[in-house]
Amino acid sequence: MTITFSYPREFDTLSLDPPHFRSSLLAWDADGTRIACARTDKSIKVAKFDHIRQKFDDPVVITAAHESPVAVLIWECSRNARLTAISTDCTLKVWEIKTKAHKLVRSLKLANTAPKLAKYSPDGRYLAIADKEANLILLDSSTLQLSTAISIKMSSQIGDMDWDADSETLICGLTDGSLQLYRVQNNNNLHAIELIQSLHLSDSPIVSIKYIADRNQILAAGLDGQLLVVDVQLLICTKSLYNLDDAPVCIDILAPAVAISYQNNNVRIFDMDGGEEVHEVKNSKGDNALAKFHPQFREILAYIDGSGKATVMVAKKRTGPARALPRPVSSRGRGSGLSASSGPSRTIRSDRFERPNAKRPKY
């Protein structure tokens, strides 16, 4: 097996906030032109990101965005200027972000208890919300009316969820180690959802999943450190990748690169095809472990560092002749199967995620 893409060796870090601010959540918009962070003081900051100049512009701060801490922060897929935040008191708010300004366009109180996750479908039609009590609620995002919402009591808590590319199937990874696929239907504005497939993947809770559109695969991370690749059409596990350093918290993918955030270790980036670690993000260990690739460039990674600062890692600028920018990844950005680097490749001993031979300090 060989490394299937090249990765920079040196990076600069850009801080989204002054040192005294602390963040708990990060979210890129659909094309990576804006990044939002939820701060521990219940405010939200949004800034435009210029990947060419490698700087932030036109910051917008929503002070006292909620009365309770923000538990979920996501952008609408179909309308790039709409930011949705859900607080621990179950209040959902939708903000329209303008240049140096913001406007609250929707606010409602959810019936869920302790919201944990939320995900818009790729076409922007649906919003799925899960809480810590194993409840799932599906809303029509055009109206966000609770009267037409669909509620389901799951057999186990949802560790993570994602949508397929056609916005017809909601994929849920459960804490009982199973993967469940739900078909969502809309007939004359009458919504329905039904369980169509269930696959037991592990005896360990599933903590994070990602649907890889161009490969029609699901990548699922278990609390025991396994990373499982599932063929969606056959609904079978085609590969199990072990030897992850610690229990994962979340994964993000811009195929074939996978960023893994751990409970007690730095964020690390792996090649999911070659199976080798390509980069370790220094000072990214902390209680709020979280790393998110830019939607178009794997060389740009947003994360919350060990002190709680919202940080963006960018490839270090080189002096001398101008370099061509990396080719953007497809809009869904989670499985474009880019061609191998023209540089030399390295051979590894197996197709598993294994640590380099050099000893690393124990964290």
Score class of each variant (00 low, 15 high):
residue 126 Y to C: 00
residue 157 Q to F: 02
residue 168 E to D: 07
residue 166 D to L: 15
residue 185 Q to W: 00
residue 132 K to M: 03
residue 155 S to L: 07
residue 185 Q to L: 10
residue 127 L to E: 12
residue 145 Q to A: 11
residue 184 V to E: 07
residue 183 R to P: 09
residue 162 D to E: 03
residue 162 D to W: 02
residue 196 I to N: 02
residue 159 G to C: 00
residue 167 S to P: 04
residue 201 L to E: 03
residue 174 L to S: 14
residue 156 S to M: 08
residue 203 D to A: 06
residue 184 V to W: 04
residue 183 R to A: 15
residue 202 S to M: 00
residue 176 D to G: 07
residue 171 I to M: 12
residue 190 L to V: 13
residue 132 K to H: 06
residue 162 D to R: 03
residue 128 A to M: 06
residue 190 L to F: 15
residue 137 I to K: 07
residue 132 K to P: 01
residue 145 Q to P: 00
residue 154 M to Q: 05
residue 192 A to K: 15
residue 191 H to A: 10
residue 180 Q to R: 14
residue 149 A to G: 08
residue 197 Q to Y: 02
residue 177 G to M: 05
residue 160 D to K: 00
residue 201 L to C: 11
residue 166 D to V: 12
residue 200 H to Y: 06
residue 181 L to I: 11
residue 177 G to C: 06
residue 195 L to K: 10
residue 138 L to T: 08
residue 199 L to V: 03
residue 156 S to K: 13
residue 159 G to F: 01
residue 152 I to G: 01
residue 203 D to R: 09
residue 156 S to H: 12
residue 189 N to S: 15
residue 176 D to K: 06
residue 134 A to I: 02
residue 180 Q to D: 13
residue 152 I to A: 09
residue 166 D to E: 15
residue 173 G to R: 01
residue 182 Y to R: 04
residue 153 K to L: 11
residue 195 L to R: 07
residue 160 D to M: 02
residue 125 R to M: 14
residue 147 S to D: 02
residue 203 D to L: 02
residue 176 D to W: 14
residue 175 T to L: 04
residue 130 A to N: 00
residue 123 D to L: 07
residue 201 L to S: 03
residue 199 L to M: 05
residue 134 A to T: 03
residue 124 G to C: 10
residue 186 N to Q: 13
residue 167 S to L: 04
residue 190 L to E: 14
residue 179 L to D: 01
residue 173 G to K: 04
residue 201 L to F: 01
residue 166 D to K: 13
residue 200 H to T: 10
residue 152 I to S: 04
residue 142 S to W: 13
residue 199 L to G: 06
residue 187 N to T: 14
residue 201 L to G: 09
residue 151 S to Q: 10
residue 158 I to D: 14
residue 200 H to E: 07
residue 139 L to G: 11
residue 192 A to N: 14
residue 189 N to W: 08
residue 175 T to M: 03
residue 161 M to D: 07
